[in-house]
Design a protein around this nucleic acid. Structure first.
Length: 422
RNA sequence: GGAGAGGUGGCCGAGUGGUUUAAGGCGGCGGUCUUGAAAACCGCUGUAGGGUUUAAUCCCUACCGGGGGUUCGAAUCCCUCCCUCUCCGCCA
């Protein structure tokens, strides 16, 4: 959420910034609402002040055995009734203002490249080289079926499309990757967190999934919960409504969770294989930092995610998302894209973002500086470190052998327990 | 699922209709004392919004788990929801 005062006082700046995202917003109605909200607020506050002072007078008279003027009481009764009506009107306006702001995306950082869609994203760097094959490489789903470690057919039977069953060393590989990544990040100073996979509506609003993207989420009713689409939601909201001390910052968390996504509107995209699933595993990095540090923290967060791929020996590139491709809550995002041989292109395996105070304002996460009065919002960041399913895809495809077996990357062998899956 | 007890500032904790502008304590900040520190003592110390001043300031409003109600007036009374704890039952 953007700062209401900033929007009120700089509507042109906000409008200009959002235009870069391809976002046209009409601020006229908002500005009118704000105007009437402030006018009404002043009226209500002065009437409340009057009511409070008269009530206090009454208390004093009563204490001194005095008699209360019935006419005065009647007058105050009217004032109270009037206030009730005004309060209702104010609440209506406030709700409109609030919901307007909840639907406004974050402002892009000035270093974010201008652009319309993913074609305008800018490559920042590459690491490693794509593997060379002296045979025709197979897509991962075929490898998975031949080795009997991924079962899409039976997953369809028990759940439906966009689900997979991992079996044998496939299941072990998945579990090994989770442990490998968590261990690596913990060694870098991240604290491991295992949160609930179901959260309430407030948490979803806090990180920005709601109210705008309800159709992307799985929801259960009675009682009402949402399935998390990423660990970002429970982990960022860990500190919802808290005032942290400056000494607590920065806070680094690493969290493994399954992620649940409706994938509404992606019919026909990546229908085969593990790339796009309704449920997938992910190890996520989350940071809470001081505002002046957040862009350095974004760089180091991205490097921490990259290190996973480096240790696995997987070729990748990092792209800076352009203004038009930026997510709703993000100010700046680096995507890490891993090389997928059978597709002849790079696919997103991690997305690292700085949200500045956008989520902190929604979730009300603040901190106090030593010796200073008042509070400030923290900056929140997160990034996949990494998406497990897509890492499995990358390993199967990049490490496949002519005989159909798959070599396990060195760094992972202690976790999987074998050197090769055949 | 049944029965009961609770939810108060950064933390602990008092407060059942009107000097409570939320007692007291802890923590934090500043000061006195001290070679320095500790201890002791003194003072200050919640958040948010609106207004005001050149500014430091000052004024007003809201907030005692959320929402609603009663009342001139609610932390306090009523309704409702959420959460925590204890006991019983069930259970991985």
């Amino acid at each position: 959420m953007l700062d209401i005062r900033f929007v009120r006082e700089n509507p042109e700046k906000v409008k200009e910034a959002l235009k870069k995202r391809g976002y046209e917003v009409d601020f006229n109605e908002f500005l009118e609402l704000e105007q009437s909200r402030l006018t009404l607020l002043k009226e209500i506050e002065s009437k409340r002040a009057l009511r409070n002072s008269v009530s206090q007078e009454i208390a004093k008279i009563k204490a001194k055995d005095g008699k209360i003027d019935e006419a005065l009481i009647a007058q105050m009764r009217n004032l109270s009734n009037e206030l009730k009506l005004l309060d209702e009107r104010l609440k209506e306006i406030e709700q409109k203002v609030e919901s307007f702001l909840l639907f406004i995306p974050n402002i892009p950082h000035h270093t974010v490249p201008l652009g319309k869609d993913e074609n305008d994203n800018v490559e920042v760097r590459r690491w490693g080289k794509p593997p060379k094959f002296d045979f025709e490489p197979m897509p991962h789903w075929q490898i998975g079926e031949i080795l009997d470690i991924i079962d899409f057919e039976r997953a369809g039977k028990i759940a439906g499309s966009r689900f997979a069953v991992m079996k044998g060393l496939g299941a072990k590989l998945e579990r090994a990757l989770i442990n490998f990544m968590i261990d690596l990040h913990v060694s870098k100073g991240y604290r491991e967190v295992l949160p609930p996979f179901l959260v309430n509506k407030e948490a979803m609003i806090g990180t920005g999934q709601l109210p705008k993207f309800e159709e992307d989420l799985f929801k259960v009713s009675d009682p009402e919960f949402y399935l998390i689409p990423t660990a970002e939601v429970p982990v960022t909201n860990l500190h919802k409504d808290e005032i942290l001390s400056e000494d607590d910052l920065p806070i680094y968390y690493v969290s493994y969770t399954p992620c649940f996504r409706r994938e509404a509107g992606s019919y026909g995209k990546d229908v085969r294989g593990l790339i796009r699933q309704h449920q997938f595993n992910k190890v996520e990095l989350v940071k809470f930092v001081k505002p002046e540090d957040s862009y350095d923290e974004l760089e180091s967060l991205t490097k921490d995610a990259e290190e996973v791929l480096q240790r696995l020996g997987l070729h990748y590139r990092v792209v800076s998302l352009c203004t038009g491709d930026l997510g709703f809550a993000a100010s700046k995002t680096y995507d890490i894209e891993v090389w997928i041989p059978t597709q002849g292109r790079y696919r997103e395996i991690s997305s690292c973002s700085n949200f500045e105070d956008f989520q902190a304002r929604r979730a009300n996460i603040r901190f106090r500086r030593r010796g200073k009065k008042g509070t400030e919002y923290v900056h929140t960041l997160n990034g996949s470190g990494l998406a497990i399913g897509r890492t499995v895809v990358a390993i199967l495809e990049n490490y496949q052998q002519k005989d159909g077996s798959v070599v396990i990357p060195e760094a992972l062998r202690a976790y999987v327990g074998v050197d090769i899956i055949r």
